[in-house]
Nucleic acid binder design. Sequence first.
DNA 1: CTGTGACTCAAAGTCCGTG
DNA 2: TCACGGACTTTGAGTCACA
Lengths: 83, 83
Amino acid sequence: MGATAKVLSVAFGRAMREERLNKGLSQEELAFRCNLDRTYISSVERGKVNPSIHITWLIAVGLDIPLWVLIKSAEELASNKEK
Amino acid sequence: MGATAKVLSVAFGRAMREERLNKGLSQEELAFRCNLDRTYISSVERGKVNPSIHITWLIAVGLDIPLWVLIKSAEELASNKEK
DNA sequence: CTGTGACTCAAAGTCCGTG
DNA sequence: TCACGGACTTTGAGTCACA
């Protein structure tokens, strides 16, 4: 992954964390709802990994919002971050 | 990947192909714009792979539309397909 | 111009811990 | 409750020859 490659994953992680906190969920609770590992949720939020579209969908379902809404927030965050 | 796991990837492939054809692009041309292999583009369109969020973003950029728009179309296709 | 199987390799993703 | 690490298995990324 090149330098700009991580921009979206980092933004996605931020958007996802924001949404999780809005719902008052812990990483562990979200992990349970998504059927994903607790430590993996953490990695995604910190932008350490580049999740598949299927994983992002699981997360959106766990957060109880459409995936496109999450992606839209992420893209907005990403473009605001561009220097 | 379980049975329902492929639903979104398949829908994403459809949405993406639709958009590509709307722009009058060949898989080869899109592949060039995305810096991806032609055969890989083909796999994504056919829902054979479960692309990462980074890949979907490259494709959206190549198609010159925001990723969330593409995802939104995909989710709509997916929910219409649910029997 | 596109679909497909086979392949290699890096990264995703899980599970065990720690402070 | 979370960040982070090590070790491990599975999957995606990316390319090729051929139909």
